[in-house]
Design a binder for these strands. Structure first.
Lengths: 336, 336
DNA sequence: TTGTAGGCGTTATCAA
DNA sequence: TTGATAACGCCTACAA
């Protein structure tokens, strides 16, 4: 059907082996021969059959990406970073969105394994031990991005979520806030949200605020959930002067929700987000938030993975990228 | 190395052919045998080698997606729609972002062809004839999503961009606006922006507005470009009362840009976007915009592609999904 | 520097 | 209902 290495060989008057050598830039082929072969390739419009190559070499140049809820601007940037690095190293991306469900993740893991991906990038909020075990048992090189993985075999690259959250509460405390509300990610998100909760706790401890007295509500990283949660916090705890949301979209939702209840931001209430998605500078009031670079994170995760695949020493297993508190208009001193 | 069909066959005491039949749910295998085989599969933790299967069957269950600038909320939703339908039909997605550059697109096309993808979904704003020719010459089933393709062999699914743009201008005209500004996509985007420009023209004609007198500026679908373009339009043409942006992000940027110049929206200036991304309801003022469903578009594009791959009659080649003008807070009657 | 031949793991054909 | 066998297209010893 399609034109194969044999057809090229016939036309060029050489053996298939020689054609294969030309394709793979083997140095031990006469320049003259190579030219003949390349002409034949052009003339026949030959396209290599990757499946055959993968079958033979056992190396697919394919990176599997498993993500949870990729219609999230931060994760999308991360994916772009992964892609940029992958492209530079000659990898293609094969991709599945698990929506954070373990079952889906395991299913994709199987599929990607069957396609013999050379490596795995995992971008999920909740990291299940089940998933870790499966990955390890299959022996596929994997790097987690954005979430810290509490396992000393599996590398991950993220921001120091604990420290970042601590920075937020410290900042708000220094402004004079004493009554806080928290809108975290889903409870299944033990990783990212879990780390951030730790940071919140640690700052509270430092400032002798009772963690258990602080209302913590769950959101699902959507505008709507932020709005709903903020309204609940404010009606249940009218004395609240600052809300920390674990994601910019929820924070923007929270601003709208609070405004619907008649609050002015930041005069009556400070709201802080997390991620610094592009939008956050363009909403009104502009959002105070923790900046982290999804693109860099994705890029570096893929660079790291590439080193593992190449058998190089990738350096330390857990890497923190810098974060930065961006103070904008949605936060200020508490009302007196 | 890895466990193969042969190992399973040995353990189960049958031939490789039988194992293959069990894997593929062939009906002509005794239930008893199938059970034995399945046990062996479980025991050995056998995972099929897809490359071998693809090589043999010439069918990869892989859909190639070429997108331009996927860190765009609308396109991201579209991709999710594609994925949902692909999953339902047993396809996996392999994915490349061309950033709208023809060279990249052709390169990805080659790569995807070499991986023997069963079909192609193309989500690009600019559609180059070169690309169309290559796709046709390779004979890979392809569906374009979001952009109308002016070619009577290649199917596409989109919104009626011309009609939608006309709706916007009609609406603004009816409100009393006479001095317009337009922020279009890049000039290389002949498709989507081109179609919308046609609609604008057609409404202008209907209302006897001179198209050539209307300032049209180019943006790149970013917040920033919308802000910059709006400021230029307003300082060059202070009499402008309404700006139509070909994308919500640019529209939101335009709102901020105009505000920086001291305009109140919508009292002094109406701004209308296109897409209705989730965010548009949450900005302030909430954005008047054309709603189109990226998810549906992606889903239906993939459904369409699946039919072509299956050899079914997919129905008409060009499909328009419904659009709707969502009137929110960013538009109103012009200042008197 | 080039060619020959065998095998990667499946599936499809044919025969039993 | 099952098994033997060949073939898919490529790469890689090994031999020439």
């Amino acid at each position: 059907m399609a034109v194969t290495i044999k057809d090229v060989a016939n036309l060029a008057g050489v053996s298939p082996a020689t054609v294969s050598r030309v394709i793979n830039n083997s140095s031990l082929v006469k320049e003259e021969t190579a030219e003949k072969v390349n002409e034949a390739i052009d003339k026949l419009n030959y396209q290599i059959n990757e499946s055959a190559r993968v079958l033979r070499t056992n190396c697919s140049s394919l990176i599997g990406v498993i993500g949870a809820g990729m219609d999230n601007p931060f994760l999308m940037k991360l994916l772009k970073g992964v892609e940029a690095s992958a492209k530079a190293h000659g990898f293609n991306l094969i991709f599945g969105d698990s929506e954070g469900e373990l079952e889906q993740e395991l299913k994709y893991l199987n599929i990607l394994n069957q396609r013999r991906v050379d490596g795995l990038i995992i971008i999920t909020a909740s990291i299940y031990n089940n998933l870790l075990d499966e990955i390890k048992s299959k022996g596929i090189p994997a790097v987690f991005a954005s979430g810290y993985v509490n396992d000393n075999e599996i590398p991950c690259i993220s921001v120091n979520n604990t420290r970042a959250a601590e920075d937020v509460i410290d900042y708000l405390y220094d402004l004079g806030h004493r009554k806080f509300g928290i809108i975290r990610g889903t409870y299944s998100d033990l990783v990212t949200s879990g780390e951030r909760i730790k940071g919140v706790k640690s700052s509270f401890q430092k400032h002798q605020i009772d963690f258990n007295s602080v209302p913590i509500y769950e959101g699902d990283f959507s505008f709507e959930s932020g709005s709903v949660a903020a309204k609940k916090i404010l009606s249940d705890n009218p004395e609240t002067t600052a809300i920390f949301c674990f994601d910019d979209k929820m924070a923007i939702g929270a601003i709208r929700g609070a405004e619907e209840l008649g609050y002015n931001i930041p005069e009556d209430l400070s709201i802080v987000g997390f991620d610094d998605i592009e939008l956050s500078s363009y909403v009104k009031p502009a959002l105070t938030t923790i900046h982290q670079s999804g693109y860099d994170m994705g890029y570096q995760a893929m660079e790291f993975l590439n080193k593992i695949i190449d058998g190089e020493d990738p350096g330390k297993l857990k890497e923190f990228l810098p974060h930065e508190l961006k103070i904008r208009e949605s936060s200020g001193t508490p009302p007196t």
